[in-house]
Amino acid sequence: MVYEKRLDGRKFDELRPIEARAGIIKRADGSGYFRIGKSSAYAAVYGPRELYPRFLQNPTKGVLRCHYNMMPFSSVGGRVRPGGSRRSKEISMVTNKALLSVMELDDFTNAVIDVFIELDQTDAGTRCAGISAASIALADAGIVMKDLVSAVAIGVVDNSVVADLNYDEEAYDKGDVADIPFAVIPSTGKISLLQMDGIITKEQLNEAMELAQKKCGEINRIQRAALKDKFKAGENHAE
């Protein structure tokens, strides 16, 4: 069996429809929204602000703290247990590391920048949606960063390399599936997140990495447009 047509009819390298916005949470210092297909993520940034408990403070540079959470009603399958889990803790950690590589925190000694990522609806690719939303939120909060991090999952379903798997593809049972979430820093092409699930050949991995670069470029353009859109409103009044 070969995977010839994708379950939802997309092309092999086609992303699901994306919607991105900036500045949607009023009381946060910065916020972003990123939806890809049926996975949607809200990110809110607070800070730089004082960090307590005090032993977490770093006197030489600021601390970035990410918090990933799937809301209890968000899953396509069963109900998600509210609160943290082994999985959410891991994703919070990899999100943190994916974002940290673009940030300049030297000026925020002893302080913290908090990023809260909440997913209200999930259909695979949530850590990628979360990272993309968090990048928008951090930029919106006016935090110094070298680039916006863009993330997407590339996978292999029954020997075909596909972009942005949904849950049905991840759970495909008529052949091997590999799922690799990528986070890319578009200006340098460096990869700041790469995790892998499943079985893949070397050639396919290379192919997947190339596709990830291309697709993250696309996502980056959407993120930039979202941030600029925030300042479009009322521009007609300008003289």
């Binding site: 300049e104 930029a139 919106d140 006016g142 960063m145 200006s187």
Partner: peptide, 16 residues
């Protein structure tokens, strides 16, 4: 202020 050089390009490092 708010910009940096990388190789050939001058790039922004914050929203502004």
């Amino acid at each position: 202020f708010g910009a940096y050089r990388m190789d050939d390009h001058v790039r922004a490092k914050r929203l502004g």
